[in-house]
Computed example of a mutant assay.
Amino acid sequence: MAATCTTLEEVRTNIDLLDKQIITLLAERGRYVSQAARFKKDTADVKAPQRVEQVIAKVRGLSETVGANPEVTEHVYRAMIAAFIQQELGEHAAMTKVGERQA
């Protein structure tokens, strides 16, 4: 739960602390995304629009449970997922090229 701040500087300090935690979690999530590329056979599996919608529905529900704005959460997650899909597409393409060279 957010602390009640008495100054703008206190608000910014708390936001900076949260940003460090968020970036750390993004890095961890990214490492799992990198691992997922190994299990996907083609770019359609990487893009997985049905999975994207599952994740969006899940995080919107979590938002409501914890008191976050579901619209903001969805917007952030759609941007994050799109960026991770691009990362994963690059990794998947690189793995595919390595596999073709070994064959």
Rank of each mutant, 00 (worst) to 15 (best):
L8G: 01
L8C: 03
E9K: 02
E9W: 00
E10N: 04
E10L: 03
E10R: 07
T13L: 08
T13E: 09
N14D: 10
I15D: 06
I15H: 04
D16N: 10
L17W: 01
L17D: 05
L17V: 05
L17H: 03
L17Y: 02
L18W: 03
L18P: 00
L18C: 08
L18Y: 02
L18E: 07
D19S: 08
K20S: 06
Q21F: 06
Q21Y: 06
I22D: 06
I22F: 13
I22H: 11
I22S: 10
I22Q: 11
T24L: 07
T24Y: 05
T24E: 14
L25Q: 14
L26G: 06
E28F: 00
R29G: 03
R31F: 00
R31I: 01
R31S: 10
Y32M: 06
Y32H: 09
V33F: 08
V33K: 05
S34F: 01
S34K: 13
Q35P: 00
Q35F: 03
Q35H: 10
A36L: 14
A37N: 06
R38F: 15
R38C: 14
F39S: 15
K40M: 15
K40S: 12
K40Y: 12
K41H: 04
K41D: 04
K41I: 05
D42W: 02
D42F: 03
T43A: 15
